[in-house]
Write a protein that binds this DNA or RNA. Structure first.
Lengths: 215, 215
DNA sequence: TCAAAAACTGACCAAAGGTCATATGATGAA
DNA sequence: TTCATCATATGACCTTTGGTCAGTTTTTGA
């Protein structure tokens, strides 16, 4: 009975095709200015059909964001795995962030939006399933980062971190994640502004910020 | 001829009253879910009148954001002025951020939105006047922060910063601002999440992040 | 061959930001 | 006091857009 499977496969393909089309429109116009009509046209389906595959605009965007998170995850894992000790793994994190930042700006924005763009997150809060999906991806990313920081503290390859009290360890993992993620996200928000008004390449600023970190 | 002045005063008062009403609605419902009809009702004017005082929804929100930035500025200046050397001034910045974060969360959100909420910033980009207003407030805030970091580096009260090359100074100011601001903003984005799912008070996490900074 | 199920369509609806012709009220000169 | 003028205010109305659903077309399997 290959028919049921074939149908499922086709359905998944169609869903993917819709995500492709939506990605084009969202990345070109931004979330607000992208309309479902335009996405439907790009996908070569009627609007009603789009709503057969996705509950609403938010869910469609979340799907794009999920894809983007996967790209980031692979990149992050790649760079972390290159590191032979905790310190090097931390450097890997920095490098991976810099790479998404530079090589996949649209994807990075999609990842950010999924967790902090109220127009998107508001509806998500009322949808357990979608929320769990997003949370899962986030935790996968966080897990990678936190384990690298843990290792850097525990294997003492980053002597700058030695002064941290052991009982503060767990907090520090999380704090470190917040610090780094926050910096990159903020940098992302202001990148255009930086280039336009200060004429400074964002990666230069990021490197300056690095010099203020203990690790 | 007091009449012209009186009229101008009255106009300013009315504008303020509208901002008050809008603030209530925006802070209670969030930007997206607040409607102009509801704001008009709260202000006890018709919708048309609101549009006599503010070009659009964005501009109204920006006005609230401007007020919020003033509150933050005062707080920041107060804490920085308390510091007797560069190092203490840096601590003042941290404390000020923590205070807005804890004491004026809605205001902090409004400040953030003005510079990075696409629904708001998109329209702003096409309006030179509004954009300049926002930029001016931002630069006032940045100026305070950057001068404290400068002092901390130059008066050597923060020996941790001594290793920074002099020619990188300017970059480092900006990088430092990005680091701190980014952390706080990110922390702000995830504060509810932190409390709800990790049962960790955000200020504890911020302190953990501090321990990873050189200063 | 055909009825039932699945996939698809697009006219339609409702919400919300924004406009404008009209009305109301204050001002100042005659 | 009267009246023309200008500023202020109103709310019906317009447009856009996310979302729905009754009806049509296509696929399936007996």
């Amino acid at each position: 009975m290959g028919i049921a499977e074939r149908k499922e496969r086709e359905k998944a393909q169609k869903k993917d095709a819709i995500i492709d089309a939506a990605e084009k429109v969202f990345f070109a116009k931004g979330y607000e200015n992208a309309t479902m009509d335009e996405i439907a046209e790009e996908a070569e389906y009627s609007k009603g059909t789009i709503y057969l595959y996705f509950k609403n605009k938010e869910e469609l965007y979340i799907a794009i964001s999920g894809r983007s998170a996967d790209i980031f995850y692979d990149l992050l894992k790649e760079e972390i795995d290159k590191g032979k000790n905790g310190k090097e793994k931390l450097d890997g994190i920095k490098k991976a962030y810099l790479r998404v930042f530079l090589e996949h700006p649209n994807q990075m924005q999609a990842i950010l939006h999924a967790s902090r763009y109220p127009a998107i997150t508001d509806k998500m809060l009322n949808d357990e399933t979608t929320r769990m999906q997003v949370q899962e991806k986030q935790q996968k990313l966080q897990g990678l980062i936190l384990s690298a920081i843990t290792m850097a503290i525990e294997d003492k390859s980053a002597p700058e971190l030695a002064s941290i009290k052991k009982e503060d360890l767990m907090m520090t993992f999380l704090g470190g994640g917040i610090l780094l993620e926050g910096m990159y996200k903020h940098m992302f928000d202001i990148r255009d502004f930086c280039e336009k008004y200060y004429n400074i390449k964002p990666e230069v600023l990021i490197k300056a910020a690095y010099s203020l970190l203990k690790f």
